[in-house]
Amino acid sequence: MANQSKQYNLKNPKGKTYWLKFSVICAILVILYTVAFLFTDLTYRGSGASTGEMIRRMFFDPFFDPVHRENIPENIGYMFETLAIAFAGTLVGAILGIPVGFLAAQNVTGSFSFFGKSILNAIRAFPEIMFAIIFVAAVGFGPYAGVLAISINSIGMLGKLYSEVVESIDMEIVQTLKMTGANKIQVLWYGILPQVIPEFSSYALYRFEIDVRASSILGLVGAGGIGAPLILASQQRNWEEVGVILMIVIVTVTIIDLISTNIRKRIV
Results as ranks from 00 to 15, higher is better:
Ala2Gln: 09
Tyr8Cys: 11
Gly15Val: 10
Gly15Thr: 10
Gly15Asp: 08
Gly15Trp: 05
Lys21Pro: 00
Ser23Ala: 15
Val24Trp: 11
Val24Thr: 15
Ala27Pro: 03
Ile28Ser: 10
Leu29Asp: 02
Val30Arg: 06
Ile31Cys: 08
Tyr33Lys: 09
Leu38Gln: 07
Leu38Asp: 06
Ala49Leu: 14
Ser50Asp: 04
Met54Gln: 09
Ile55Val: 15
Arg57Gln: 12
Phe59Leu: 11
Asp65Trp: 04
Asp65Glu: 15
Asp65Val: 12
Pro66Ala: 15
His68Trp: 12
Glu74Arg: 14
Asn75His: 13
Ile76Asp: 04
Ile76Tyr: 07
Met79Ala: 11
Leu83Phe: 10
Ala88Pro: 02
Thr90Trp: 00
Leu91Pro: 01
Gly97Thr: 14
Ile98Ser: 04
Ile98Arg: 07
Val100Trp: 07
Gly101Arg: 02
Phe102Arg: 00
Leu103Asn: 00
Ala105Tyr: 05
Asn107Phe: 06
Val108Asn: 08
Thr109Phe: 11
Phe112Thr: 13
Ser113Cys: 07
Phe114Met: 03
Phe115Ala: 08
Gly116Thr: 09
Gly116Met: 03
Ile119Lys: 00
Asn121Gln: 09
Asn121Arg: 08
Ile123Gln: 01
Pro127Leu: 05
Ile129Glu: 03
Ile129Asn: 00
Ala132Phe: 02
Val136Lys: 05
Gly142Ala: 04
Gly142Leu: 05
Ala145Gly: 10
Ala145His: 11
Ala149Gly: 07
Ala149Arg: 01
Ile152Ala: 01
Met157Pro: 01
Met157Ala: 13
Val165Leu: 09
Val165Trp: 04
Glu167Gly: 07
Ser168Pro: 09
Met171Ser: 14
Ile173Ser: 03
Gln175Trp: 05
Gln175Cys: 02
Leu177Asp: 07
Leu177Arg: 10
Met179Ser: 15
Met179Phe: 06
Thr180Cys: 12
Thr180Tyr: 05
Thr180Gly: 15
Asn183Gln: 08
Lys184Val: 10
Gln186Tyr: 00
Gln186Ile: 04
Leu188Tyr: 03
Ile192Thr: 00
Pro194Glu: 05
Ile197Trp: 04
Glu199Ser: 15
Glu199Gly: 06
Ser201Asn: 04
Ser201Asp: 01
Ser201Leu: 05
Ala204Gly: 13
Tyr206Asn: 14
Arg207Met: 13
Ile210Phe: 04
Ser215Leu: 05
Ser216Met: 05
Val221Tyr: 01
Gly222Ala: 14
Ala223Thr: 08
Gly225Pro: 10
Ala228His: 06
Ile231Gln: 04
Leu232Asn: 15
Leu232Pro: 04
Ala233His: 00
Gln235Ala: 15
Glu241Phe: 02
Val244Tyr: 08
Val244His: 09
Val244Trp: 06
Val249Thr: 14
Thr252Tyr: 03
Ile256Trp: 09
Ile256Glu: 08
Asp257Tyr: 06
Thr261Arg: 02
Asn262Tyr: 13
Asn262Glu: 07
Ile263Glu: 02
